[in-house]
Write a protein that binds this DNA or RNA. Structure first.
Lengths: 335, 335
DNA sequence: TGTCTGTATGACAACGATTTCATGGGGAAT
DNA sequence: ATTCCCCATGAAATCGTTGTCATACAGACA
């Protein structure tokens, strides 16, 4: 590998001067600079990032911890975050938990030794903060920027970028109410996910605000997974039991798709017999038939907010400890 | 940060001994080992990965270069590859090209300086090999394992893990033939993607083998993107022009979904009026209605093959230069 | 008892880049 | 002409880890 030493000897200067030319912060004689640049060009020199990271005490990689990269919302987030980071000259390290919480702990233990620039947590788990906080604090003390996307951890001193789950869910319910589609069922993780609970809260509050009761039989708390099969099973079972409902608000587009499939398999028409609203708004929802009405989360905006954090590290203004991205109801065919 | 020096002084030994205890390959007196382990535990020491990487000449990260992480097949691949790597103690660096080829070049320039263990290329672009080969060779010479997933680059000396696109497409066409659904249209990237072209070849060969003509008007070569909107537009236009076809083989599930939406919007029944077969078989296809018949690619098997490469680096048997993963037609409702 | 062998350990160099400290030389000011 | 100052540059230390080389000590055998 061609190193600074090689470049330096080729240009007839010391390694320090080569470094100075690259850094550009210290004055170097124009003639010397030209010689160095020529040598760099000639030898095809590229600074070794690992050595830089060691010397600087931290590298140029940001870890993104996702719940399930196969879900549209996380894939979209990963895409946009990577794009943002790339513009900042940073790399993205992907850790997909796949709904196994032990992996998170394992990662957080290893994290401080990886020389990361930052960690972006975006997992739907209700994390056991009592246990996690010391780990996170240790990481933060070692100069690693930690931030949370989707889940509000600002109370723990962690910069959080969240979407308005309560408002989004309420808007969806209001929309369904406006069409007279009652009763409305809810499906999602409630007990085991802070995000799911927020969406449930929005659903519940909106129902109550419209003078509607919350029927426990129409609240389907799935224990794990936000995937379509969970929605299918929940809706199938409800239909088999003969429960009556005219609409379903799902905590993810995947869940909504599964519910719709269950309805379709029983010969029910969407949205006339039952209407469906999902959460996410990323991916195939535009082209499914019926296309999916959904509470759209702006993953691009979330990614930009993530980018802002790292931009601010380089001298820009420090962003707020908590940033809320609005959720927007996108009305399509399914409701 | 707590370093070997700190551990060494706490245990009353030299840094070298601490390193020896960690490596475990050199004999260390039992009593000394115990003291060192106690010190490690006491101080919460974790070896600095960056320093290790510098010293070793390469790190423990593998880069995955994807075409579009929002597409089911790539997301699934990323998930499984990350899982495999995690089991090997390796980290995944994600580079999403998002169909911008210049990003690939930029990445390959930077790659050698990142201290990567390997690079997994999985982008549908027909890469300009004339230009790329020197870069790839340079990376390979610096000890980085380079391999290609989906695209066969074994002719360029790059270990390739491919799926049987030709066979998969042929099986799909044969299935449609068996149902008497002719003529069959094809949609995908043909000119600008080696993978798309392979699928087209399978389609063409199967048609000819069944004594059917290949109608150029029913071959829709989309210039960019494998996403649903491209399929929607292609199919809409064909239907608007009054072209007659009874089935569509699409080079991705997303394209197929777009085509199906176009058909649905014209009041056509699936599969009775037109049948659809996609490619990929990952994600929502099971729960869309009609559910999607598709040529399923086993991303898990591909990821395991990737894992095998890196396992073989650690002394295992060297795997073949080219490995073919079978594609399997999964028949559901759409065809 | 002396030499030999082998094992356990320490000192030191090296990976590649950056930064601090020191120095030489040229120009300006008196 | 002499002194002063600043600019450009080089030498050397440093980040944390690991491998090489050297050494000290214990046990064995003649």
């Amino acid at each position: 590998m061609v190193s600074v030493v090689a470049v330096a000897s080729h240009a007839g200067v010391s390694p320090a001067t080569v470094s100075r030319v690259l850094a550009g912060r210290v004055p170097v004689a124009a003639e010397t600079r030209a010689r160095v640049l020529e040598a760099i060009e000639h030898l095809g020199y590229r600074p070794n990032e690992v050595a830089r990271s060691l010397r600087a005490g931290r590298g140029r990689a940001v870890a993104l911890v996702t719940g399930d990269i196969e879900q549209g919302i996380y894939a979209s987030l990963a895409k946009h975050v990577q794009s943002e980071l790339e513009a900042l000259g940073l790399d993205l390290l992907l850790f997909n938990l796949g709904h196994r919480e032990d992996r998170l702990r394992h990662f957080l233990e290893r994290a401080p030794s990886l020389g990361l620039r930052g960690i972006v947590l975006s997992s739907p788990h209700v994390m056991d903060m009592v246990e996690l906080t010391p780990v996170i604090r240790a990481a933060a003390e070692s100069g690693v920027e930690i931030l949370s996307v989707s889940q509000d951890l600002s109370a723990f001193g962690i910069t959080s970028i969240v979407h308005d789950d309560v408002g989004g869910a309420a808007a969806a319910v209001a929309h369904l109410m406006g069409q007279g589609r009652t009763p409305v069922a809810f499906v999602g993780r409630i007990e085991t996910s802070a995000i799911g609970r927020a969406r449930f809260n929005g659903y519940r509050d909106a129902l109550l605000a419209h003078g509607q009761p919350v029927d426990p039989a129409l609240v389907w708390d799935i224990s794990e997974g936000y995937r379509a099969d969970a929605g299918y099973h929940a809706a199938s079972e409800a239909l088999a039991r003969g429960l009556r409902f005219r609409a379903v608000l799902a905590a993810s587009d995947e869940l909504a798709l599964g519910c719709m499939a269950a309805a379709a398999d029983r010969g029910l028409a969407v949205p006339d017999d039952i209407a469906f609203v999902g959460f996410g708004g990323l991916g195939w929802g535009v082209f499914s038939r019926p296309s999916m009405t959904t509470v759209s989360l702006d993953s691009d905006a979330m990614a930009r907010a993530v980018g802002d954090i790292f931009r601010s590290q380089e001298g820009g203004p420090a962003p707020a400890n908590r940033r809320v991205i609005q959720a927007k109801l996108v009305v399509r065919q399914s409701a």
